[in-house]
């Protein structure tokens, strides 16, 4: 019976995947039809885009460029993650740190990334420094808020339980505070990385001479729409790869307790039987 249920679940997952693929196929068909109507400079066909992408890959341009953008996004996010979470934890623990830092973070949050790019250009000039800096300042508030909320929301009933069971301070941190904080930080990291890629691309487009964004800028100057489309495809593929190859396995590894799983099969029938027989007796 259990096998049957699993099969059913597997079938549902399979159909869901098919539906997703059908949606993408539909998009490609519409793109193809539109490309028949419009000039290739306005909208190249999917096939033209794929052939440019293949050429770029064979020429060995795609992977190094993608790695540079990855370095910008991860480097910037890495710079933000540590101080952001440390500051967030400090603000969560101490009311005065919170009062001091919160308004500053709110202001930072209100500054659009594009404005940071302008400032970064003035400070760092063309090059890798601008995208890394912009990503860092754009993602720092997100990490800060996540760490702050995570620290403030530790379940006090669990702390009470820990007190009653004489759990030492060291274990409070490793068994209660850290797992709870991680559960708050993980979604924040995923959201932050999504923003990091987009901001990195934008900063590269305006202020760098390398990376996917810089390639897009070149394609724009040359009016090479197919190349622009190809680089956009690279950016999308890169984000998806990162999410499914790195983030999801990492989450499964760090948070097995968050995985959806069917409720335990309770021996309800057996138990009802026990109770009933006792009542009869």
């Amino acid at each position: 019976m259990k096998g049957k249920a699993n099969n059913g679940e597997r079938n549902t997952a399979w159909y869901a995947r098919c539906a997703g693929l059908a949606g993408i196929a539909l998009l490609l068909v519409l793109w193809h039809l539109a490309s028949l109507v419009y000039n290739p400079v306005v909208l190249p066909s999917p096939w033209a885009t794929v052939s440019v992408l293949v050429t770029l890959t064979i020429e060995g341009q795609v992977i190094p460029t993608a790695l540079i953008t990855t370095a910008h996004a991860l480097g910037g996010f890495g710079l933000a993650a540590l101080p952001g979470s440390m500051l967030g934890i400090a603000a969560g623990i101490n009311l005065w740190v919170r009062r001091l830092v919160w308004p500053v973070v709110t202001i930072f949050q209100g500054i659009p990334p594009i404005a940071w790019i302008v400032l970064a250009l003035l400070w760092f000039g063309m090059g890798g420094g601008t995208p890394v800096f912009t990503v860092a300042v754009a993602t720092l508030p997100i990490v800060f808020v996540g760490a702050l909320e995570g620290t403030r929301t530790v379940d006090h009933t669990l702390l009470e339980m820990a007190y009653v069971f004489r759990i030492p301070r060291r274990m409070l941190i490793s068994d209660i505070y850290l797992p709870h904080l991680l559960s708050y930080l993980f979604p924040v990291i995923i959201a932050g990385l999504g923003i990091a890629w987009k901001v990195a691309l934008m900063a590269e487009l305006l202020a760098a001479n390398n990376g996917i964004g810089a390639r897009l800028a070149v394609a724009r100057i040359n009016l090479d729409t197919a190349a622009a489309m190809a680089w956009i495809a690279v950016a999308v593929l890169l984000m998806f790869t990162f999410e499914y190859v790195v983030l999801h396995p990492l989450k499964r590894w760090l948070e097995p307790w968050r995985q959806p799983a069917p409720l335990m099969d309770m021996p309800v029938n057996r138990m009802n039987h026990v109770v009933r027989s006792e009542l009869v007796r």
Binding site: L158, E160, M161, V164, F165, P179, H180, S183
Partner: peptide, 13 residues
């Protein structure tokens, strides 16, 4: 030892 009204288990264990 103490048993609370709610189980108060660690969700991550």
């Amino acid at each position: 030892a103490y048993i609370f009204q709610e189980p108060r288990l660690l969700p991550w264990r």
